[in-house]
Amino acid sequence: SEIVKHAEEALERGEFVRIEHNGRVIEIRNEEALEELRRWVEK
């Protein structure tokens, strides 16, 4: 997914991403959060 790709690229640069999706906000700061995002987006 485009969202996950964006988050992965930001993590590689040492940045973090805040994503709003279906009214929820998730902050991607590490691999664990990235995995959570993947599960969340796939639903």
Rank of each mutant, 00 (worst) to 15 (best):
G23K: 02
I3S: 04
R29A: 10
N30M: 03
V4Y: 09
R38Y: 04
H6V: 12
E42P: 02
E36T: 10
I3D: 03
L11M: 06
E15N: 07
R29Q: 08
N22E: 11
E27Q: 06
R13V: 03
I26H: 07
L37C: 06
L11V: 05
E31N: 11
E42M: 13
E31M: 14
R13D: 02
G14A: 04
I3L: 14
R24M: 11
E35M: 10
V41N: 03
E8M: 15
I19Y: 08
E15M: 08
E42N: 10
V25Q: 05
E15S: 10
R24N: 06
F16W: 12
R38L: 04
E27T: 09
K43S: 12
E15A: 08
E36Q: 12
E31C: 14
E8W: 12
V41A: 06
N22M: 14
V4G: 02
L37G: 00
R18G: 03
K5F: 05
G14Y: 04
L11W: 09
R24T: 07
I28C: 04
K5M: 06
E27F: 14
A33T: 11
V17M: 10
E8F: 11
E15Q: 10
R24A: 07
E42W: 09
R39G: 07
E12G: 14
E31T: 13
K43L: 14
H6E: 10
E2M: 13
F16C: 14
E31V: 14
E8T: 13
S1V: 11
E9T: 08
E35P: 00
R24G: 05
K5L: 07
S1A: 14
F16V: 13
E15T: 08
L11Y: 08
E12L: 15
V4T: 04
V25P: 02
R18T: 14
F16M: 10
L34W: 02
V4W: 12
E2W: 15
E2F: 12
A33H: 11
G14S: 04
V41C: 08
K5C: 05
E8R: 15
A33F: 05
I19C: 08
K43W: 14
E20G: 04
H21M: 15
E35Y: 06
I26V: 07
E35T: 07
I3M: 10
E20P: 04
N30I: 03
K43A: 14
F16S: 08
A33K: 06
E42I: 09
I28P: 00
R39D: 06
V17P: 08
E31R: 15
L37D: 00
E20V: 14
E8K: 15
E27M: 11
N30A: 04
I3N: 04
E12M: 15
L37Q: 00
L34F: 03
E8D: 02
E9I: 09
W40Y: 06
E31F: 14
E31Q: 15
L11D: 02
I28W: 02
H21W: 15
E35Q: 10
E42R: 09
V17L: 14
A10D: 01
I26C: 09
E35F: 06
E8Q: 15
E12Q: 15
G14T: 01
I19G: 00
F16P: 06
I3E: 03
L34R: 00
R38P: 00
I28K: 00
L37E: 00
R24F: 14
N30P: 01
G14M: 05
H21K: 05
R39F: 08
W40N: 02
V4H: 03
A10L: 07
S1G: 09
V4C: 04
R38D: 00
V17A: 07
S1D: 10
V41Q: 04
G23A: 02
E32P: 04
S1Q: 13
R29L: 12
A7Y: 03
E36M: 13
R38G: 01
R29C: 14
R29M: 11
I3T: 05
W40Q: 04
E31K: 15
I19E: 01
R13T: 04
E12K: 15
E32Y: 09
E32T: 09
E36N: 08
G23R: 01
V4F: 09
L37P: 00
E36A: 13
A33W: 05
K43Q: 13
H21P: 00
A10C: 13
I28E: 00
H6F: 15
S1K: 13
E36D: 07
I3Q: 06
E36Y: 12
G14N: 06
I19V: 13
V25G: 02
E2G: 09
V41Y: 09
L11C: 07
N30S: 11
V25T: 09
V17Y: 12
R38H: 03
K43I: 13
R24P: 00
E32V: 08
V41T: 05
G23M: 02
S1W: 15
V17Q: 05
V25H: 06
I26Q: 02
E36H: 08
E36K: 10
E32L: 09
R18C: 14
R18M: 10
K43D: 11
E8A: 14
K5T: 06
G23L: 02
I26Y: 14
E2S: 13
G14R: 04
A33Y: 04
K5Q: 08
N30Y: 04
I3H: 06
E36V: 10
E35A: 12
E2P: 07
L34A: 01
E27K: 05
E20I: 14
N30H: 06
R39N: 10
N30L: 03
R38N: 02
E20C: 15
A7L: 05
E2D: 14
G14W: 03
R39V: 08
A33L: 08
E9M: 12
E15K: 07
E35D: 11
V25R: 04
A10V: 05
W40K: 02
V17S: 05
R18E: 07
R13C: 08
E42K: 10
A10Y: 06
E15H: 08
E27Y: 14
G14Q: 05
I19F: 10
V4K: 01
H6G: 07
V17N: 03
E27N: 07
K5W: 06
E35W: 07
R13Q: 05
H6Y: 15
V41S: 04
E42A: 13
E27I: 14
H6D: 07
E12V: 11
G23P: 00
